[in-house]
Design a protein around this nucleic acid. Structure first.
Length: 293
DNA sequence: GTTCCGATGGGGACTATGCC
DNA sequence: GGCATAGTCCCCATCGGAAC
């Protein structure tokens, strides 16, 4: 079913990953609607990419998964950016022969992150202030390390080079998270958001890869009423993992949003190094949360 | 020895809100 | 209004070990 703005959304939305949502949606609707959607797709600069994804999208696994539960697909809606349906980007209308109901699909491409969460949910303003105080020092260390390892700034700026300085700073943040975990209030609400237990409708996850996609009909979740039993610990270099009954149930990558040092959009750069204007990074604003597969 | 591929952690862009 | 920071969507380059 097309909402009044669906075709407009399809021809104009440029969010990253929307191509996959459009392609899957196309495959889930009637031939008549497919024609209209095709016209909308043709207005896009990336239309060829989307047509390619449509070709590689076979919905048989979805239909089979529905049929295993005695369900038939009857329609679908395009829900990109619609928080009212939870994490779903496309919603299937399905029928069990008597009644119809909705099952959503969250569409992803080659990544497992289910939510970006701000660090303020985990650490206090005082902890953040303390860490921020140290950021300029670590930024200088970062520049020194990168320069010593890779040479001119042009060789390393924004080129995804791992760094010991990043690891060290992230570690300070992880220490803060772990120190503060017992003080975090309303864990049920927090965990519920992280695991999408608060989704108003059931949802599946379709993760596209270089070829085809993987369908998960039972996204991992936890019993939210047990949120206060969840424990945290460091995991690998940059993660904080969440454990329930000693079983790892999820992990959160503590990370800078757009890099340790940002491209400078500010009028007055925090740093100018070898002529490149830079701003301090944002280490608290966009941590990656993934559920354990 | 080279290619493949999954894990890891580094990144982009946009919107909302705050502040002068 | 204009600039800055914070928050929320999201993706993928790199690397090292497995597969060939």
């Amino acid at each position: 079913m097309l909402y009044t703005n669906t075709l407009y959304e399809i021809s104009t939305n440029i969010n990253t990953g929307v191509e996959y949502e459009i392609a899957l949606f196309y495959q889930l609707v009637s031939a008549n609607e497919q024609q209209q959607i095709l016209t909308a797709i043709n207005k896009r600069a990336d239309k060829n990419k989307i047509l390619g994804i449509i070709k590689q999208t076979n919905i048989t696994p979805i239909v089979v998964a529905l049929s295993k539960r005695g369900l038939k697909l009857s329609d679908a809606t395009f829900e990109t950016q619609n928080d009212k349906v939870g994490p779903s980007d496309v919603v299937m209308l399905v029928s069990d022969g008597k009644k119809k109901f909705k099952i959503g699909i969250s569409v992803k491409y080659a990544n497992t992150c289910t939510l970006n969460v701000t660090g303020r949910r985990f650490i206090t303003d005082a902890q953040i202030a303390e860490l921020k105080k140290q950021l300029p020092i670590y930024t200088k260390k970062y520049i020194d390390e990168m320069t010593a390892t890779y040479g001119n700034v042009g060789n390393w700026f924004r080129l995804r080079r791992p760094s010991e300085t990043t690891d060290a700073f992230i570690d300070l943040i992880r220490d803060a998270v772990i120190d503060n975990w017992s003080n975090v209030g309303d864990k049920p609400t927090l965990l519920s958001a992280m695991f999408h237990s608060d989704s108003p409708i059931e949802f599946w996850v379709v993760t596209y890869m270089s070829s085809g996609y993987k369908l998960s009909t039972e996204p991992q979740t936890i019993e939210v009423r047990r949120a206060n039993d969840v424990k945290v610990a460091k995991y690998q270099t940059s993660y904080v993992a969440f454990y329930l009954d000693n079983k790892k149930v999820g992990q959160m990558q503590v990370k800078f949003n757009n890099g340790f040092i940002e491209k400078c959009k500010k009028k007055t750069p925090d740093i100018v190094y070898e002529g490149v204007k830079m701003a301090y990074g944002q280490p608290f604003s966009s941590w990656n949360f993934s559920v354990e597969e």
